[in-house]
């Protein structure tokens, strides 16, 4: 997994590349925790999954963990460019409704900034 993040306005954008498996889940969880701390009470996070074909349950757990912490802070989290396999996985785990999905960064930043 390759993870980089940057800001676009108030939105922290996580760019993830490569499959997120095994030890990657823990790294992703720690990165989310840092971003949530830095993002303040109304943290906005966009997870760009372009280049990520698949993730395992540990990575999914990192996403759910981020979601619950962001909810507590009245923030928002969205995802974009989810592969078919990841969409299937979210659906299988009945988690698809937790994460707002966006077609592109512009639409995501506009929505998440409001």
């Amino acid at each position: 997994m390759e993870l980089t993040f940057r800001k676009n306005g108030v939105v922290i954008i996580f760019n993830l590349k490569g499959n997120i498996i095994g030890p990657d889940g823990l790294k992703l969880r720690e990165a989310f925790q840092k971003a949530i701390e830095l993002g303040g009470d109304t943290v906005r996070i966009l997870v760009n999954l372009e280049g990520t074909g698949m993730m395992d349950s540990s990575a999914l757990g990192a996403l759910v963990n981020a979601y619950t912490h962001i909810q507590q802070k009245k923030g928002r989290i969205g995802i974009m460019n989810a592969s078919a396999n990841i969409e299937k996985l979210l659906s299988l785990a009945k988690l698809a409704q937790l994460f707002e999905q966006f077609p592109d960064e512009e639409a995501a930043v506009e929505s998440l900034s409001s």
Partner: peptide
């Protein structure tokens, strides 16, 4: 059961579900 109640929001417990799928 990962779908039961608050288990949906747990950050673990989905491995067997995924293997079965």
């Amino acid at each position: 059961n990962p779908f039961e109640g608050d288990n949906l929001f747990r950050d673990s417990g989905r491995g067997i579900l995924m293997m079965n799928a």
